[in-house]
Amino acid sequence: MKICFLMYPWDRIEPETDSTLRLIHEAASRGLTVAITTPHSLTIRDSVAYAYCNVLKRSAKVSGSIPSFYKHADFKRCKLPLAGFDAIIMRANPPLDTTALNFLDSVRNDVFIMNDLDGLRIANNKLYPASFSGEAARFIPVTHVSKSQEYLEQVLEESSTEQMIMKPLSGFGGQGVIVVEKSAQRSFRSLLDFYIGRDQGNYVILQEYVEGASEGDVRILMLNGEPIGAMKRVPSEKDIRSNIHAGGREVKHALSKEEKALCKALGPQLVRDGLYLVGLDVINGKLIEVNVLSPGGITRINKLNRVKLQKTILDFVENVVSAREKVIERKNAFRKVIEDAEVI
């Protein structure tokens, strides 16, 4: 199988913790053809989509030490047609590069792309949880999104709780997430001036404060609509955010009954939207965010539970590619029968 990782630059990888590197190492260990590229390396020539890729040179034995594998990885630079790959794994960091998706549109019928391009377009924003309905809707906290200062001030004033969470719609990685105290309403307008901006260009999210938020959140990795691993992220004493990059720490976690019900309710829509590998951020049984572009946590969940989630993920990719190939083979076989009938 030939697989391409559309990702961030190789030299920005943190080998001890990087989730994408675990997937690349697993692919190399299986003897697959592995190429990596970035959104800036995509190009089109004569209506054919290409990427300037670094193709991993095969070695007699792939090191079992992932940091050592990273340090000694040897690449060959090539311009390759994207349609020649069996799978493209989307692992670029936020924000979403919509132009890169436009390049990939021309090969979506030739290559299995994870996650699906249309799925990324509709889900790579903090409004996506609002699309869940039916049983899934009960897991979504009350959320308000607006550029109107007057409306947001009214929401805070009428809130039945003493605290709300505010964050920019365009933020990621915990950037700009703060707790707003109802008792500090006199400072709220100044905060809105800053978040919305003088040109009224930025949307702001104001969300009900979910009890238990101060104790951290749970990151759940979903594969093909099913949970495959989880961890709890606990914030530091000096920060409300539990993101690891914001100073939080990870602890082992077993899914609660409510969290399992959440996964069961959300899973079917994720699959329908082509969101096969997803990170859910959950607090006290409520869905806070859906991470679809480059969900992390593989390394830490592996360490906490002595598993290798990258094996499960690559098994899924290989099974999908195999199924697609069998469909093509079956179609070609049927075409041959029809062609032979015409000759007779």
Rank of each mutant, 00 (worst) to 15 (best):
L120D: 12
L120I: 09
R121Y: 05
I122F: 03
A123W: 08
A123D: 09
N124I: 04
N125L: 02
Y128A: 06
P129F: 00
A130P: 00
F132E: 03
S133N: 15
G134A: 01
G134P: 01
A137E: 00
A137F: 00
F139K: 01
F139H: 01
I140W: 02
P141E: 14
P141Q: 14
P141T: 11
V142G: 08
T143C: 13
V145M: 15
V145P: 14
V145L: 15
S146E: 12
S146H: 06
K147T: 10
K147I: 07
K147P: 01
S148N: 15
E150G: 03
E150R: 04
E150W: 02
Y151P: 02
L152G: 08
L152C: 11
L152Y: 07
Q154S: 10
Q154M: 08
V155I: 14
V155N: 13
L156K: 03
E158Y: 04
E158D: 07
S160W: 05
S160V: 10
T161V: 10
T161F: 13
Q163R: 15
Q163H: 08
Q163Y: 05
M166I: 12
M166N: 13
P168V: 06
L169S: 11
L169K: 10
S170G: 08
G171I: 02
G171D: 06
F172M: 03
F172L: 00
F172V: 03
G173F: 01
G174P: 04
G174D: 05
G174V: 06
G174W: 04
Q175F: 06
Q175R: 03
G176D: 14
V177T: 09
V177N: 01
V177H: 00
I178L: 09
I178V: 11
V179A: 14
V180L: 02
E181M: 10
K182H: 10
K182D: 11
K182E: 09
S183P: 01
A184E: 10
F188W: 00
F188V: 02
R189W: 00
S190M: 12
S190F: 09
L191Q: 12
L191W: 05
L192T: 01
L192E: 02
D193V: 05
D193L: 09
F194M: 12
F194C: 12
Y195S: 12
Y195L: 11
I196R: 04
G197I: 02
G197L: 08
R198V: 07
D199Q: 12
G201V: 01
G201S: 12
G201M: 01
G201D: 06
N202Q: 11
